[in-house]
């Protein structure tokens, strides 16, 4: 249940970031033809783009939609298949614990760095997308593993 809510919020965040990105690009294009130079659009577009991609990527992990080879998992059934899924989810969980940890380190390191065009904006808000991605992906994976274990018991 909680996982559903997190996913919903995260997808919304991604869509909002993507919309900001589209708007910034449009403003940039039009201002160039109007002969005005708007300096902040490029950075806004870049950083909202990164936010959108990482939020989207996390949602897609929960939906198991990232490209993968499923030859093996198509061949096996029942308990073996559940066990395989749990294995894959555990690998992703461990990886995402690392992503969260190093994401926090990176965010801390660059927290006070500035944007180039908008000097008052901190880079920290941009880097924050990495630990958020890592932590949510880890939560999703825990959810998958718990469900897998339940299912495993059901098969017995």
């Amino acid at each position: 249940m909680i996982i559903k809510t997190i996913e919903k919020i995260q997808l919304r965040m991604g869509v909002v970031a993507l919309s900001i990105f589209f708007l910034a690009i449009l403003i940039q294009v039009f201002s160039r033809y109007a002969g005005i130079s708007v300096i902040w659009t490029e950075e806004i577009a870049n950083y909202s783009f990164i936010w959108a991609i990482f939020m989207g990527a996390a949602v897609m992990v929960n939906r198991k939609s990232h490209f993968r080879f499923n030859l093996l998992s198509q061949k096996i059934k029942g308990k073996k298949k559940i066990f395989l899924d749990i294995t894959v989810d555990s690998i992703l969980l461990i990886f995402n614990v690392f992503v969260s940890y190093y994401g926090i380190i990176a965010t801390k390191s660059f927290w006070n760095y500035r944007w180039v065009a908008i000097q008052n904006f901190k880079m920290g808000y941009v880097w924050l997308c990495i630990p958020i991605m890592g932590i949510t992906m880890a939560i999703y994976m825990m959810g998958h593993i718990i469900e897998g274990v339940k299912e495993m018991k059901g098969v017995e």
């Binding site: 990527a57 992990v61 990232h66 490209f67 993968r68 080879f69 499923n70 030859l71 093996l72 998992s73 395989l84 294995t87 894959v88 690998i91 992703l92 990886f95």
Partner: peptide, 11 residues
């Protein structure tokens, strides 16, 4: 190994 057990390619 990871590819063949179905870990997503990007990961």
């Amino acid at each position: 190994l990871f590819m063949s057990i179905g870990v997503p390619i990007a990961f």
